[in-house]
Design a protein around this nucleic acid. Structure first.
Lengths: 188, 188
DNA sequence: CTTGGCTATGCAACGAGTTGCATAGAAGGA
DNA sequence: TCCTTCTATGCAACTCGTTGCATAGCCAAG
């Protein structure tokens, strides 16, 4: 139930509606956890019925009403309890790696464009993360000193940056390998 | 349906039973995709009924019979088709990162032991991957030259090694941050 | 003026993945 | 002898996650 905990963290950082949460999951929280709006609405409803969250209905002019959720006592307790218990280290899941191994049974060069496309996505993400880092943590407009919450957000963001850099370097390695195999072909 | 494709790749590399596949998913294939035996048995059954796989029942002495699966024509075609269509780049899912951000709403130092434990798991995995690399690709017992399939397996393994190295370095960064916050505490 | 995009919420159906349990013979250690 | 582990397969129930669709008013561009 990691989505539940991710929602608790995000709502503690700032209360908001399901729609707003869905957008945060495309941005900062999305650096390390993803969710669609349908998933979020369903879980929010359940968490509210369990007493972990409180709702406020907000009328807005020229926009649909929204429901603003915030964490209440029991929700905080659930998060705290989760922080104190250990979780299993996850293994990575990389569909592209399955494809790369599968390329041995087809023409490896068909993957070159696909890998180049993925590489570009990771370059864009890296640029986006670095812009966020400059804006919120290391640039002149950033608060000094950072408080504990900001320090923790920053170290998570550094993880995202390290991940993207590592991935780009690996995809370069993959491209080199695919091109090398393409020049002296031997499809199985 | 990435599991289906991962199974096709694994069975093309070498035919085997559901049990054997489950163990491969704890080893080499598991570097980038995971699955439990229940999932594997269910999908194997479905794939066989769809004509992607063939089964051979093998009697063994002093062991239960097993069903050896292998890929047949339509299965190869499904894999080839999948290789030619593009997939979405995945974002990372890291539960520990959720915890780290959540630590801002509790005592950050409670996470230190947890992060140290994860760090050790990644160190062990790295050692395991490096041993495999030496055994299969770079050591004296490795075949030279490597064929295309081995080159592709090697580049995927290099990705796993890069991932573990990056993760260990990041967890060191996280530990430094948590310890720094612990000495001058400010729980929210 | 119509089309498409943005805010905002939600249902229904399906597929993916996890957890607990069950069976069953053989081998090996306490 | 009993207990555990390993090989080998599988069912049932559940939660998690995705995809398609629906509603509905507002705004901006063509």
């Amino acid at each position: 139930m990691a989505l539940e905990h991710a929602i608790l963290v995000s709502l503690l950082e700032k209360p908001g509606s399901g729609y707003e949460l869905a957008r945060r999951f495309e941005r900062s929280i999305g650096y390390f956890w993803t969710a669609t709006h349908q998933q979020i609405y369903r879980v929010l409803k359940r968490m509210e019925s369990e007493g972990l969250l409180a709702v406020r209905e907000l009328s807005q002019q020229s926009r649909p009403d929204k429901k603003e959720y915030s964490v209440v006592g029991p929700g905080r307790a659930v998060l705290s309890q989760w922080l104190h218990q250990s979780i299993q280290p996850e293994s990575m899941r990389h569909e592209l790696a399955v494809k790369i191994r599968g390329a041995a049974f087809d023409d490896p060069s068909v993957l070159i464009r696909e890998v180049e496309r993925h590489r570009q996505v990771h370059i864009d993400r890296l640029a986006h993360y670095q812009a966020g880092e400059l804006r919120d943590f290391t640039g002149p407009a950033a608060p000094t000193p950072l408080d504990a919450g900001q320090e923790l957000q920053h170290v998570v963001l550094r993880g995202g940056i390290a991940y993207e850099r590592m991935t780009i370097a690996w995809l370069d390695d993959v491209l080199g390998t695919l091109r090398r195999l393409g020049t002296s072909p031997s499809p199985a």
